[in-house]
């Protein structure tokens, strides 16, 4: 079961790939879709592996992603940040 979740602010993303590269459990991949600026934001490919460590959030130069730990048993899903 996933211990964490991750939120992506797709419109802020510039597609640098730092979050994908340095995610310790390889939760993320750059998606094939574009945001309105023409960048590929990350998407979640391994829903169950997220530990909620927020390393993706720490690496992000654009403040476009962040993770957090969850205590309930809900499975991880990508969420749209407000």
């Amino acid at each position: 079961m996933a211990k964490g979740r991750v939120a992506i602010v797709a419109e802020r993303c510039k597609g640098c790939g730092f979050c994908v590269e340095f995610c310790p459990t390889k939760v993320l991949a750059l998606s094939s879709t574009y945001n309105s600026k023409g960048y590929h934001p990350p998407e979640i490919i391994a829903l169950d592996k997220c530990s909620g460590c927020d390393l993706c959030g720490m690496y992000c130069p654009d403040f476009a992603i962040y993770g957090w730990k969850v205590t309930d048993e809900k499975p991880n899903k990508a969420v749209a940040a407000r």
Binding site: R5, A7, I8, V9, A10, S31, T33, P41, E43, I44, L47, D54, G57, F63, Y66, W68, K77, A78, V79, A80, A81, R82
Partner: peptide, 20 residues
């Protein structure tokens, strides 16, 4: 992208309050 859902109220990017 994967299916999106609305974030729970209590979750925001922790760095947000420090940014314009």
């Amino acid at each position: 992208m994967s299916t999106l859902e609305v974030l729970p109220q209590e979750v925001t990017n922790p760095v947000e309050p420090f940014l314009r």
